[in-house]
Design a protein around this nucleic acid. Structure first.
Lengths: 208, 208
DNA sequence: TCGTTTTTTGACCAACCGGTCAATATCACG
DNA sequence: CGTGATATTGACCGGTTGGTCAAAAAACGA
């Protein structure tokens, strides 16, 4: 057998290191160029490996992409999973916003990879989206809906509340170029101010 | 001279029609695939023309893309230009939100084209962005800043307020696939509910 | 109508693309 | 050390891509 089929359980130390190097380089390139726009040569150069060497660890270009996306889904949904139905509603939602914003700050490439995929109509993600994302969202919107009914938070449409949280937080990763250009010449970190802004925004929205 | 150099002033009726057909097809393809992911064959097929015929009207693939982007900038900034410093602050900002949301509904391809370009680091747009977008944003944030000082709207960071408006409204175009998937099996139009949601959100944010 | 200009296209090209393969280099281990 | 398994690579391949060109077709104007 030539290709490492299960990257999460590589046999040797070298395999573990190189599969990780490749995935990291591929994340960099795919997140900027999209699937079709990225080339194996770009990924190989970014990884410091030769192109045939890439294809020693992954059978195809698409296999690299699929591996990245399937790893992404779990990471991506984790903050929403942590939303606790038993917690204090406003504080739970504000914590969720904070966690999502931290992910935009610390994992902007993952955010862009996801954005690229959705922009293209989610051709390689629609399956996973329906299986993993939708059930979780249905479950959590039901929780939010109950919070509204109980008068614990102001009246909001649960789905559109989630859309708002996603769009506002991911904007700072996906549109980073525009954000930094408009916030002035000094390359100050926009995230502290973003956190204050979003905290105020959602506090006013949820407590009315 | 072979190529039509100024598409806004074509000589003949055929040129006007075909340049427009090409730009429309290119918008469809570029907005989904990004610049590198799109091919001239795809655009030609979408336009119902032959590939050499495309290159009779535009010298290169990049020229088509640049033409689209430069046309886009004007359309894209128009709603912000209409923000009237003399108007009623809250109503002005809510109208701006409404105009941006209408653009997401009526021009989703333009929104995705813009998103794709920023995601890639705005390599073909950074110039125009600095010349056209930044001055306008500086001017309008000053207006918003004054509104805050005068106590006409609640305290908000002007730049981040604009980022919020952009991300929330454009989300419904750029992430349309995800939005429709999560809002349930029936393909109901999400925009009426989105407008109610965003109106409530910004009303609560701005009037505190 | 006929000659000129504009438009369209089939055939073609060099560069690039994802992927293969046999040969080579390196590693792990008794 | 030696030897088998693992890892790496240069050379190569067929298909695709952006772009060219000369010739044909269509539109236009007198």
């Amino acid at each position: 057998m030539v290709h490492v089929m299960n990257p999460s359980e590589p046999k040797t130390r070298i395999q573990r290191k190189n599969t990780q190097t490749i995935l990291d380089a591929a994340l960099e390139v795919f997140s900027r160029q999209g699937f079709r726009g990225a080339t194996l040569d770009q990924i190989a150069a970014e990884a410091g490996l030769s192109k045939p060497n890439l294809l020693y660890y992954f059978p195809t270009k698409e296999a690299i992409h699929v591996t990245l996306l399937s790893q992404l889904i779990d990471i991506w949904l984790e903050p929403l999973r942590q939303l606790d139905p038993e917690g204090e509603p406003v504080e739970e939602l504000l914590s969720y916003v904070r966690r999502k914003l931290e992910m935009s700050r610390d994992m902007p490439r993952e955010s862009r990879l996801f954005a690229n995929e959705i922009l293209q109509g989610a051709p390689r993600l629609s399956g996973t989206l329906g299986e993993a994302l939708k059930p979780l969202v249905d479950q959590k919107t039901a929780v939010i809906s109950q919070w509204v009914k109980d008068g614990k938070i102001a009246e909001v449409h649960p789905h559109h509340l989630l859309f708002s949280i996603w769009s506002l937080t991911q904007h700072y990763a996906d549109f980073d170029t525009q954000v930094r250009m408009l916030l002035g010449g000094d390359n100050a970190d926009p995230f502290p101010e973003a956190e204050r802004h979003l905290t105020a925004l959602f506090t006013r929205l949820l407590t009315e």
